[in-house]
Nucleic acid binder design. Structure first.
Lengths: 355, 355
DNA sequence: TATTAGCACTCTAGACCGTCGAGTGCTAAT
DNA sequence: ATTAGCACTCGACGGTCTAGAGTGCTAATA
């Protein structure tokens, strides 16, 4: 990479010292401070010259003449790609992760929600998690259960382990035996279908092959469709939104409000997580690398979780660009692995593949 | 009430003018401004004297000598109890309520979540909703559904219309027919029981009356118990937390953070809503009437929703003590009625009573 | 030739005024 | 009982000044 040629070792170590320190203190760094605090055997004047170079190359910037330097977005980018060393997780962090994931979690959405809480707590930034909007789910089980004369409960289980239910209303009294008949019929007919297959043609096909009164069949099929819409329409979990107020970059109430408002718009959040959905690795988007204006001073780190090469969703955090990259990236990586293992436990009991 | 004797008409109208204006502007009111803006035919000097009286009686206070007056908590209390006129809902508000509640909502928790969003949007404060922690729920339907060899799905429906499900794991392969047998047995045995009845004695009783292998029965009963815990353990919905930042009383980032942190502690919120659970009327707790320090500058207004005299839960809003009482109280009252009607539609199809 | 000491310069944050205006309480006149 | 008038208080606002941290440049140094 041309980056490597661009900066010699001395520049790199100065840049790293500045960014490390700035991430810690949120204060612009001056040459004298660097010479004093970080054991680089150089005078402040020399460092000053190097800093001028680094600024000219775009890695640093100044808030005003005669202020110290702070990292630019490009600086952070270089830091994340080249300079930063991953920080080992400390025992407390490992213990928190263990205790929060070893609960008896029995369902995918429950797991993701729990992970969202976990990430917010452990990183001290804001976490976002999204279950994916994919039409890859296949129906595994469908049941219809009588509740009372005019009501029934439709349940759909997918191969990805998502369970949804829906109450359906009948305009005529429903014969329980007939409902059980419907349930048995559907549970032999629908499994294996993708969610897209549940359409009007299917209803017509069913009508031809077996007699079910429309007053029952139509509400039930609508109920199934509603379940599926809930499954395909992804859900979003947000945790630790108030955490951003702990960082001085959001001490301005206007900025804080903008960001919090954004966070309450779940649809916008969803779009934000769509990013690169590579199945391996983390996506780190720094400042303006995020397309949205409202988060141009934020970094968004996302990881995908998946089962058998199918991406099931995304977990991520939002924080200031001045983020503890080395700590957070390690944590996200570690938790992503854990989540994938949990998913394997939840979804797969070695029976069917997910494609 | 002694209150009525305490303040003559003139004092009342001055107090009302001050509070109305302060709710609107958030600025302390001076005697001259009152004389000018509100058509009381008195000079500023007279009003000044009255204001001094009102302050001495505790209805007003001053931030410092020679500042205008602002209402005290007692002032707000008197305003809410005696002075305020309810504000009619405007057409836009009615339309918002109609459109957000006429969606095809099929389940109680879904309704409450939707109401929470609605209230936050329409009042522009923060809304909280809680489903109740009551052991009054009775089991209406129980089903066990095979998912695959080692997994089943337990479903519990209560007479209050709550539906929960839980995946259970078997350590031995489960015979689907046996599961159906269990399902049929439990669905004849459990309905009508309260959630407290599901205990070890019950399991022993079942064991005696029918043969079910422990490898199946125990996980299933545990699954039912987990469902019940989810039902009894109330869920909390919070919406519009960022709204508080729109009010100048929270322009101080520290105060805002305190409040937002509080709001993220769902258990604390739950306690906050427990207040008076009278089945009629609203509870309005102003400032220090709330027992918690963190919200001593907030007012919490709560309403309960219920079905056939059984309180099912609480909806509420949190905002500054300088709240638009007349508007918000009308809205809360109106929405509470609407919710109760919706609940009747959801829960009751005229089959069983809830006690 | 690369590094460093020294110096003049820049800019911000904070302390310290003085002024203005809104508001009060009191007194005397109506 | 009400009001006009007056002296007083206090915060908000704007200007000035200073201290301190940091810079860039130049000349001296290893």
């Amino acid at each position: 990479m041309f980056f490597d040629d661009l900066l010699d070792e001395r520049k790199k170590s100065i840049l790293k010292a500045i960014i490390d320190d700035y991430i810690d203190t949120a204060e612009p760094l001056g040459s004298r401070t660097i010479a004093r605090k970080h054991g680089i055997g150089l005078s402040s004047a020399t460092i000053r010259n190097e800093m001028a170079d680094l600024e000219e190359m775009g890695f640093l910037c100044q808030l005003h003449t005669s202020s110290g330097r702070i990292p630019s977005n490009l600086g952070y980018r270089f830091y994340v790609d080249r300079l930063m060393k991953r920080k080992e997780l400390v025992p407390e962090e490992l213990e928190t992760i263990r205790s929060m994931l070893d609960d008896n979690i029995s369902e995918l959405t429950q797991l993701i929600r729990q992970v969202s809480v976990l990430i917010a707590r452990i990183t001290r930034y804001t976490s976002v998690a999204v279950t994916p909007r994919i039409a890859r789910n296949r129906i595994k089980t469908v049941r219809v259960i009588p509740i009372d004369t005019y009501k029934g409960l439709v349940i759909v289980v997918t191969n990805t382990g998502i369970i949804k239910n829906n109450v359906v209303y009948f305009c005529e009294p429903a014969d329980p035996d007939m409902l059980i008949m419907i349930s048995n019929f559907l549970s032999s007919r629908l499994p294996g279908l993708t969610t897209e297959n549940i359409d009007d043609d299917l209803v017509l096909g069913i009508r031809e092959s077996v007699y079910i009164p429309d007053e029952l069949l139509l509400p039930v099929m609508q109920g199934i469709r509603d379940c599926i819409n809930q499954i395909d329409g992804s859900e979003i979990y947000l945790e630790g939104a108030a955490n951003i107020l702990n960082y001085p970059e959001f001490c301005d109430i206007i900025k804080a409000k903008d960001l919090l408002n954004l966070m309450e718009e779940k649809s916008v959040l969803a779009g934000m997580l769509q990013g690169l959905l590579s199945s391996k690795g983390l996506s780190v988007r720094i400042g303006t690398e995020n397309k949205m204006d409202q988060i141009e001073n934020c970094t968004v780190i996302t990881a995908t979780y998946s089962y058998k090469d199918t991406i099931l969703g995304t977990i991520g955090i939002i924080g200031p660009t001045r983020m503890e990259y080395s700590r957070v990236i390690s944590i996200m990586d570690y938790i992503r692995d854990k989540v994938n293992i949990e998913i394997k436990r939840l979804v797969g009991s070695g029976d069917d593949n997910i494609q």
